[in-house]
Design a protein around this nucleic acid. Structure first.
Lengths: 258, 258
DNA sequence: ACCTGAACACCGTTCAAGT
DNA sequence: ACCTGAACACCGTTCAAGT
């Protein structure tokens, strides 16, 4: 990959060899280091030591830049191996991949969320999820419903998690609101106390996602799987079709039921 | 309530009698008619036929304005009566209130969401939810967990619903992404087809929330309730302290374990 | 082909000044 | 007490022009 720290051309003020990939990667690093809000065209241009308009020449505009950035990141996130043997375990494993990817890349997830590109970011993992449901015997309208229910559950927990990171004024944060709840309301003190504390979101994720997946897989009978799962594959301009090597997972998932 | 269409003062260019409430209500109408993004200080000032700085004099700034606007709206949304007899029914009913309020007031919900004020908007209904869980015998840490799981579920479905309304570029929308899925992936055609169609989110809400609530209320045994429901009460600047009659619920000990 | 400079139409916010 | 006018420091984007 071309580095962007090359010398300027022959004493002129022009930079050499800046291409589209450089811009996208610089944008990614900018988001990772300074947060989603730091991704402005001027800020990015400054990082690359070019004029704002140069950015426009390489990538079409802010929206295009974000689309490409998210697409790039989405492929990285799809690399995690699916764990578990039973359909339930494997579906939960995929949901957990979405969850963990988002928590480990908060800024990019926020960026995607702010710009309506969440589906794009989760795309490869969503494809893998649909496949896993299919293997479990869930297809058609039922699969779409199951898929959406799972994504909604993960997404709902995710906005709670991301909320903790972003700079929300104290008087709007859930914990703070519970902390000064009117005692006259007659709510249980221990409950209020628990609500005023930061949540254990990982535990909440496990508990809730297991309940939802159990509910989804309750209808059709589980299928003894012997077909191999398809690797997650991005819908981007993939130039090389990487065949993903299958490895037989050795059943090492958390065994939790609601 | 004072109208803001009063005549200007004696031929001068000054408007008369514009107060804080006028500004907040005008902002609310602006959001409702033109969407969350239309709420700019200049736009609002133009609506009220004053200068931008006048807005700053009445409400402190954009954030304060939004806080007050959301707080106002939150009280309106709490007016719905809780339906059902069993704890399960009543908890689901409250979750449904949050769901329906948000769907009926998309722009304001979006505004709250964009500005991290979701907790504020849902506050009165959240209080009612905690109360209802308490009546059902769920308190302490278990109540906090149950509360958060329910909110996450509703919230996750809500961002899917709100996504449909906002102007997201076609290539980022979930349905569009599924519509041109690579056939080489080997995914079931009927499933892809179902995913490419707009979802029946109301049905999805009912199905998912019932599963989650059932999961939550599975642990403590259900309580035969004969007490009447407490009305939702906002945490705003309440001038009159309504003493809430304490009802000895038949069995509401703090029987909570993680 | 690649990059600059100037400009446009927006933002939220502040500050001195008017009546 | 209530409001205006001008200004500051930002945005994304476009367009003509340079090499």
């Amino acid at each position: 990959m071309k580095r962007s720290q090359e010398a300027t051309v022959e004493g002129t003020g022009r930079r050499a060899g800046l291409d589209r990939a450089d811009v996208v990667l610089a944008a990614l690093r900018l988001v990772e280091t300074e947060g989603a809000d730091a991704l402005t065209m001027r800020n990015l241009a400054g990082r690359l030591e070019v004029t704002t308009t140069t950015i426009y020449w390489h990538v079409g505009g802010r929206d295009e830049l974000i689309t490409e950035l998210i697409r790039y990141q989405s492929e990285i996130q799809a690399a995690r191996p699916i764990e578990g043997e039973t359909p339930h375990e494997r579906v939960v494993s995929l949901a957990r991949h979405i969850w963990e990817s988002a928590r480990e890349n908060r800024a990019i997830t926020s960026l995607a969320h702010q710009n309506g590109a969440t589906s794009l970011l989760e795309r490869p993992l969503e494809i893998a999820l649909v496949h896993e449901l299919q293997v479990a015997g869930v297809t058609g309208a039922a699969a779409a419903e199951a898929h959406r229910a799972i994504l909604a559950t993960v997404g709902g927990l995710l906005i709670q998690a991301l909320r903790d990171e972003s700079i929300i004024p104290a008087n709007r944060r859930s914990e703070a609101l519970w902390a000064d709840t009117d005692p006259e309301l007659g709510l249980d003190a221990a409950t209020i106390d628990a609500l005023a504390q930061p949540a254990d979101l990982d535990a909440l994720f496990e508990s809730t996602i297991n309940a939802v997946v159990a509910h989804i897989l309750a209808k059709p009978e589980p299928v003894k799987r012997r077909s191999r799962p398809a690797a997650a594959k991005a819908a981007g301009p993939a130039k090389n079709k990487t065949k993903r090597a299958r490895k037989s997972t050795t059943k090492r998932t958390t065994k939790s039921n609601g």
